[in-house]
Computed example of a mutant assay.
Amino acid sequence: MNFEKFRTETAEVSISKFEGKLSEEYNLFITPSKSESVEEQLNAIRNALTAFLNKENYTSEHIAFQRLFVSDFTNQSVELDKTDLFNCDCALSIVQQSPLNGKKVGLWTCIYKDKSSNSFHKKKEGNKLVIDHNGYSHIYTTQMHSTDAETCSYNQTNNIFNDYLRILDGHNLTLEEHCIRTWFYVRDIDNNYAGLVKARNEVFDQFQMTKDTHFITSTGIEGRYAAPSVSVLLDAYAIGGIKPEQIRFLEAREFLNPTHEYGVAFERGTAVEYGDRRQIFISGTASIDNRGEIVHVGDINGQIRRTFQNISALLGEANAEMNDISSMIVYLRDVADYATVEAYLQEKYAHLPYIIVLAPVCRPGWLIEIECIAVKEISNSAYNCF
């Protein structure tokens, strides 16, 4: 993994690059450097991304996925509605999770480019993007929410799952075999998370996804959609053409307990094996021990250290380490902890691309939660390259 940072006049860019056998994979976090209007900050992000694409001789068509973190989705929605940054048919996710550097918006974007003539083929339909390449179909589905917005979080989650299952079925895929990663954003998480958990557990039971089989790597966190009546928002990533033996679930039992022991259903991490790389998806991870107890209650410094110990242990099960991380999102419950967390990250992991956002965690005692994606170079002739 290679890391780089650069600045434009109005933005800061942090980059990871993985160069595989057939294709390159970039992750970028871009944040404006000036406190201006939403429109001006979006322009700053757009200009910085354009500068990167021009530097690497890429085009907007190489952009696969983008997530905008915004400070006030409802009041910013007019500007955001006209902000497909490049009109490039990428998977676009927008969530209200305020960047804690004081800016109104921040961007995470993922870019793929084939090194030969066998290009990535993109097809966008509504909130679904399908990318076909080398025998795999990468299906990003974003901004899923219930149109029956007057109902509770339990019913909204059920409606979302019904819609997502129809999408997967349309590609001859299943939830249990092909969905790799989900992100659940919950408005007023302290009150609405229980409804999400109940609905998800019931759906998983329906598809024989249990503690004895497997769940799905996930983040469930505070996040808002523009419409105030939407309690639950879902982004998801699935892979077609993948074989069961290419997927491994990570536990790190010495450090973490199985999630079902405290009533929820998600995997701590998932490693996906390709011919040239291992992609590792780490769920939202907090300061918890192998009995399910919060470690360092009320102590942000202690919780940071324990959270990274847990992440390191999960990565280790996939023969990876912190320097293999390509992107990282840090969620804080209390804005007052930002300076402490930013100082720690700058001391220990300044080279990694990351963003820190305001997003209360599903368990009030957790002050911080971190998710990440890592990419490890391998060579496995049993599988197609990415």
Rank of each mutant, 00 (worst) to 15 (best):
S327E: 00
V130N: 06
S14L: 11
H62Y: 05
Y225D: 07
I131S: 00
V375E: 11
I131G: 03
K348Y: 11
A374I: 06
Y274A: 04
A11P: 01
T8Q: 01
S146R: 10
E251R: 15
V38K: 05
T50V: 14
N87R: 12
D114W: 06
N27L: 08
A64M: 13
F281Y: 07
Q143D: 10
S119P: 01
P99G: 09
L234I: 15
C88Y: 11
D324M: 02
N134Y: 12
S33M: 06
Y383W: 12
N319M: 06
F215K: 04
N57I: 01
W108Y: 09
N384Y: 13
I180E: 00
V341W: 02
F65N: 04
C110R: 06
K5Y: 06
Q206S: 08
V335I: 08
V130R: 02
Q76H: 15
I167T: 13
G135H: 00
V330Y: 00
K198P: 02
D114Y: 01
I311R: 00
I247R: 02
P353Q: 07
L53H: 05
A236M: 01
T340N: 11
Q246L: 08
F65D: 02
G316D: 15
G284M: 11
N310G: 15
T50G: 12
L53P: 01
D276C: 11
A382I: 09
A350T: 13
I30E: 01
R278V: 00
T259V: 08
C90F: 05
R277P: 00
Q303K: 05
F249I: 03
H121Q: 13
N101I: 06
K348A: 14
L129Q: 07
Y262E: 05
F249P: 03
S146P: 10
P32H: 00
K124V: 04
I294H: 13
C152S: 15
L53W: 02
T151V: 06
F386N: 07
F161M: 15
L314D: 02
I45C: 04
P353E: 06
G135F: 03
